Amino acid sequence: MTAVDAVTAAGIEHRVVRHGPVGSVAEAAAAQGVEVRDLVKTLVVRRSADDYLFVLVPGDRQISWPKLRALLGVSRLSMPDAATAKEATGYERGTITPFGSARPWPVIADERVRGRTISLGAGERGVALQVPADAAVSALGGTYADVTDPEVSRRR
């Protein structure tokens, strides 16, 4: 099942946006006509062997590993390499979405997306799904939590 099929089957109001190639979160937000904070990155996090979860992170923020570890009650988390992430989800990095994933991993959405319309990956390059965050998180059986920090600029 594709991501678009999964969102449709869940009965979630959505808009498919075909925006073509982009090189950054800011470019993707501009191409879709949304604010960077509403472009939500779906990150795959490994708790242990064959145990993953999706973390939905606003485009202007990054995962706070201490907050996420405390929430999950674990001392160690990691991000899988690209091949392992594809195996776990069925999607390539940059296209990952919880909708239509190869396995229905748990979903944690940063609380800052609550009540907003967000743009998620749609399982293929240059395509996004704009959905109401609350409907999406509910349909995925997800939870909201404070699991991010402001994005730190990597420029020097």
Score class of each variant (00 low, 15 high):
123 G>I: 00
15 R>L: 12
11 G>H: 07
91 Y>G: 03
133 A>T: 11
107 V>S: 05
12 I>C: 02
15 R>G: 02
124 E>L: 05
132 P>K: 02
119 S>P: 03
134 D>R: 01
38 D>I: 00
42 T>D: 01
61 R>M: 01
94 G>A: 06
49 A>F: 07
40 V>F: 05
88 A>W: 00
17 V>E: 07
27 E>Q: 15
120 L>E: 03
17 V>P: 02
37 R>C: 00
140 L>C: 02
41 K>E: 01
25 V>G: 00
114 R>E: 14
85 A>S: 15
100 G>K: 10
7 V>H: 00
93 R>F: 00
15 R>M: 04
8 T>E: 12
106 P>W: 07
149 D>A: 13
97 T>P: 01
87 E>I: 09
125 R>M: 08
127 V>E: 15
62 Q>R: 14
132 P>H: 04
32 Q>N: 15
12 I>E: 06
73 G>P: 11
98 P>C: 09
144 Y>N: 08
100 G>W: 09
18 R>D: 14
44 V>I: 15
38 D>G: 01
88 A>I: 04
42 T>H: 06
8 T>G: 02
120 L>Q: 01
127 V>M: 15
143 T>L: 07
34 V>M: 10
38 D>W: 04
72 L>G: 05
66 P>W: 06
123 G>D: 04
83 A>V: 12
91 Y>M: 15
82 A>C: 04
126 G>H: 07
114 R>Y: 05
80 P>W: 05
131 V>P: 00
9 A>V: 07
120 L>T: 03
138 S>G: 08
86 K>C: 14
30 A>G: 12
119 S>M: 13
137 V>K: 07
55 V>N: 04
141 G>C: 10
77 L>P: 09
143 T>H: 02
6 A>W: 07
113 V>T: 15
41 K>Y: 07
30 A>W: 01
33 G>M: 01
62 Q>A: 13
129 L>N: 05
69 R>T: 12
131 V>Q: 08
142 G>S: 11
156 R>M: 00
25 V>F: 09
65 W>C: 00
48 S>K: 14
100 G>C: 13
49 A>H: 11
66 P>I: 00
95 T>P: 00
72 L>N: 00
118 I>V: 15
47 R>D: 03
131 V>A: 05
99 F>S: 06
21 P>Q: 11
6 A>T: 04
107 V>P: 03
108 I>L: 10
107 V>Q: 06
67 K>H: 06
134 D>Y: 09
90 G>A: 12
151 E>R: 12
148 T>V: 14
5 D>N: 13
60 D>Q: 06
114 R>D: 05
58 P>V: 06
36 V>S: 09
98 P>T: 02
22 V>F: 11
86 K>W: 02
44 V>T: 12
32 Q>M: 15
42 T>A: 15
35 E>D: 12
151 E>S: 05
68 L>Q: 03
124 E>T: 14
52 Y>T: 03
31 A>R: 09
11 G>A: 11
35 E>F: 05
135 A>L: 10
141 G>D: 08
58 P>S: 05
122 A>N: 06
73 G>K: 10
88 A>N: 03
44 V>K: 09
91 Y>P: 02
70 A>G: 08
80 P>H: 14
1 M>P: 01
94 G>T: 13
120 L>R: 02
13 E>M: 02
118 I>M: 04
47 R>W: 04
97 T>Y: 09
152 V>L: 11
